[in-house]
């Protein structure tokens, strides 16, 4: 009896929330407010723990006679790792600085504080929300270098729901995500979607589109969800089948989605 009651209530809730909402309820907002600061702490702690494990792995296989040598080696590896870290970060920071200097958008900088745990979707929680001026459907980007010295906004995803100081973001590699694109070189347009495996594939509106591997893609702004001109990635593979009316492509995204940590949310135009 209770089981049937609970089931019916939950199915009603699913039905009510299935079509997307503009605002989340007060209850959700409060729960998010309590949980997200704790998540932020643990997410950062997780990064530190993994970093420590990695340097311990480097040391492994210690034997008595070459202990001293191994230790020195480990120290050098550790130092090397730190330097590499600094160099890598310098690159990243330089990109960020260039982007902020040259961009025509206004940004809110934000940090990822949690990832969805059900292995189905690529959804994340970020630590900024309505209080910082974030709205539903805002684009989430990171700086990407496409040619030498040209830094542009690379698309990561979009905001789907906003709390007071936290928001849900759905990434473009998520299976439920659709995005319209255009090729920079020829201006041919089409639609891509994410998938469960984190791959992006799609097709062109024009089956005669003249595209080759390595062509660069931007968002086209069709559909009004994503703003125009955000960098997506390059074409990895063009499939030409004589008996199919559409031309399928596989996209290599510019951003490594496993290593996204700091992101920018576009809130408006300067």
């Amino acid at each position: 009896m209770i089981v049937a009651g609970v089931t019916i209530i939950l199915i009603i809730v699913i039905g009510l929330t299935a079509n997307g909402r503009n605002k989340i309820t007060a209850v959700e907002n409060v729960i998010g407010k309590i949980i997200t600061p704790i998540q932020k702490f643990f997410y950062n702690a997780g990064e530190v723990v993994v970093g420590t494990f990695k340097s311990v792995e480097d040391i492994g296989n210690l034997e008595e006679e070459n202990k001293r040598l191994e230790e020195e080696n480990a120290r050098l590896i550790e130092m090397n790792r730190q330097y590499e870290d600094i160099i890598m970060r310098e690159d990243f920071l330089k990109n960020e600085a260039d982007l902020i200097k040259n961009t025509k958008y206004t940004f809110v900088a934000s940090q990822i504080i949690g990832k969805d745990s059900d292995n189905w979707f690529d959804r994340v929680i970020i630590d900024k929300g309505a209080k910082d001026g974030i709205k539903k459907d805002d684009a989430v980007v990171q700086a990407v270098e496409i040619d030498e010295d040209i830094v542009i906004e690379g698309i990561i995803g979009r905001v789907v729901e906003v709390g007071d100081d936290w928001s849900k973001v759905i990434s473009i590699i998520d299976g439920g995500s659709r995005l319209s694109f255009k090729v920079i070189r020829t201006q041919d347009g089409g639609i891509i979607r994410g998938s469960l495996e984190g791959e992006i594939s799609g097709y062109f509106f024009d089956s005669e589109a003249d595209v080759v591997n390595g062509d660069k893609l931007l968002t086209s702004g069709l559909g009004g969800v994503f703003i125009e001109g955000l960098y997506i990635g390059t074409i990895e593979n063009v499939e030409k089948k004589a008996d199919e009316l559409i031309r399928r492509v596989k996209i290599k995204p510019a951003i490594d989605f496993n290593n996204v940590y700091k992101v920018y949310i576009i809130t408006g135009i300067k």
């Binding site: 929330t17 909402r21 959700e28 949690g114 059900d118 979707f121």
Partner: peptide, 8 residues
């Protein structure tokens, strides 16, 4: 509540 758009 925290992660998905559809609740339940």
């Amino acid at each position: 509540i925290i992660f998905s758009e559809v609740i339940g």
